[in-house]
Design a protein around this nucleic acid. Sequence first.
DNA 1: AAAATGATCAAG
DNA 2: TTGATCATTTTA
Length: 209
Amino acid sequence: MKKLPREFYEGDTLDMSKRLLGKYLVHKDNGTELMGRIVEVEAYKGPQDKAAHSYNNKRTERVEIMYGPPGFAYIFAIYGMYYCMNIVSAETGTPNAILIRALEPISDLNQLSINRYNKPYSDLNKRAIINMTNGPGKLCKAMRINKSNYGEDLCGDKLYLVESRDNEEIEICESPRINIDYAEEAIHYPWRFFIKDNPFISYPNKWKC
DNA sequence: AAAATGATCAAG
DNA sequence: TTGATCATTTTA
């Protein structure tokens, strides 16, 4: 499995969002390898995008990493108890990032389950399996991604992406983004992308492809 | 439908 | 310093 190079993260953020689908996110954590397949993302294009934390080139300590080169992790805390993981995109100086909204759990399934629910995978019912990583906060919990991963270089050995399976055909759907009611005209931008019919996306019944 | 929960931000 | 907000999840 080939780790994605820096060039993968460069260029147009919407293009990259679609490129991300089907790739594998890997977290080497405590001697275990945690892995999930990316099935849903959202693009945030700072300067022009009222939904983005970096809208209008807003520059705070939290978003600082978005102003650096692409291919780094932007992690933020939300609602007191959850984390969300984004991948910095575009080029240095352009504060764009892509939120990872859902994963298909791949491995180590038992460790993912323990991280998420504190019980073994074999104890999970069908519903718990579906709910394991089908949201941005859920997947961070299962993958043990938190503030300590802020600013991680995805071209390093700790947190990174690997290539999709060869010859894989996926159909990409798009929709407006989730939970950005404050974003005025940006509410309607179709910048959420997901793999058609994948069972692990969030809100599977809300938008048809 | 609504609570839980605390980091982050902008105002003052 | 403080009060409001929030790219969510859970439970009911």
